[in-house]
Design a binder for these strands. Sequence first.
DNA 1: TAGATTGTTAATCGATTAACAATC
DNA 2: TAGATTGTTAATCGATTAACAATC
Lengths: 215, 215
Amino acid sequence: MKTLKIPEATITRLSVYSRYLAHVDRRGVTTISSGEIADGVGVSPAQVRKDLAYFGEFGTRGVGYNVKDLYWHIIKILGLNTTWSVVIIGAGNLGTALSMYGGFRERGFKVVGIFDNDPHKIGYRLNGVEIYPMERLKEIIEREKANIAIIAVPADHAQDVANLLVETSIQGILNFAPRALNVPDHIELRNVDLSVNLELLTFNLAVRRNMKGAR
Amino acid sequence: MKTLKIPEATITRLSVYSRYLAHVDRRGVTTISSGEIADGVGVSPAQVRKDLAYFGEFGTRGVGYNVKDLYWHIIKILGLNTTWSVVIIGAGNLGTALSMYGGFRERGFKVVGIFDNDPHKIGYRLNGVEIYPMERLKEIIEREKANIAIIAVPADHAQDVANLLVETSIQGILNFAPRALNVPDHIELRNVDLSVNLELLTFNLAVRRNMKGAR
DNA sequence: TAGATTGTTAATCGATTAACAATC
DNA sequence: TAGATTGTTAATCGATTAACAATC
């Protein structure tokens, strides 16, 4: 099978397109052009068409795309036509927020367990989901058939948590701790760094300040 | 002045490097090579040197980089040698978590106000920071000299909030709502989409599943 | 000096953009 | 049919990697 490599940026944009399609669908729009999608999300029409072309032909020349149709095609591409069960490690501020975050549920993710090492938190529920002690990590992951783990513990404990997860049936890890993690190849790993985004902003603001100063 | 364009990926990595440098500094390391930084954060040594080269010469040939020195150089580049005052709009789950998130404070960001339109939340404090009604947005931003606003409201209200912010002295917006926003050029805008990251993971997991199925 | 490692240039690789034939 | 818009190819642009001279 020919598997040409898909740019990660393309997947990122597909996710954005699909959310925009859901948005216009709710507003009753049935057909949309690459140019309209492009305007809606802030990219070029050629980019939209190129991104979709990696996966097939979803439109009609001279007409555009059927909104619902394209939406479901992208959902399928992203693997979101099945439910993913998620566990969250760390019931601190970030872990708590992520476990209540509506954005995940909207996209079909289901939080099935939260873990923490603070005895005072064990047994409580967040959004109906129980907080378990770390000792029960493997047991609960296997019982709930969790696919994905979100790491939301302090940086210094992130690798320890990753090591525990490697011993379970977990398939993917989303790491919010600002520390590079080591996991075997059969586990998908992605890092999200909240501070980096704020710092991309300050870098640009600092550049502007300096430009002003140099005038 | 020659201003060659810096890739955004370079800034992202500088932020990561600086955090790694802080980490090894705490462990007492005084000198480090591009190769060691590369290993620590998971990029190539050439990449590290290239990224730094955009901004100057910070190392010593045959020796490497002084850890503290390089750390401060990068902090300066990122604009983090001054304190940035941040307001958070939306005291829901995400806004609450962000306002308590230690990762921001660690990097010198200071949350000076939280805003919400729910009367029941007004006057309460999160991490010592008061929750104000939306009506006081402009007043508080100007009083506290806030530079950056973080939008953590539902997607449908994000543009309204952005419109209010445009009328204030805010310089940059970090938008967590999954919706493209329109703001004038003099305001720096960055979008963070938490779901996208989870979906990059499921895309890869779905590809793996299909590969298995095709075998 | 010999060994190590930077800073930088050139080569490679990959992603985006522009253009247009295909076709509804 | 004429107008519109896709799907796709070729051209451009930009970022990463490899290699090595400079130099501590």
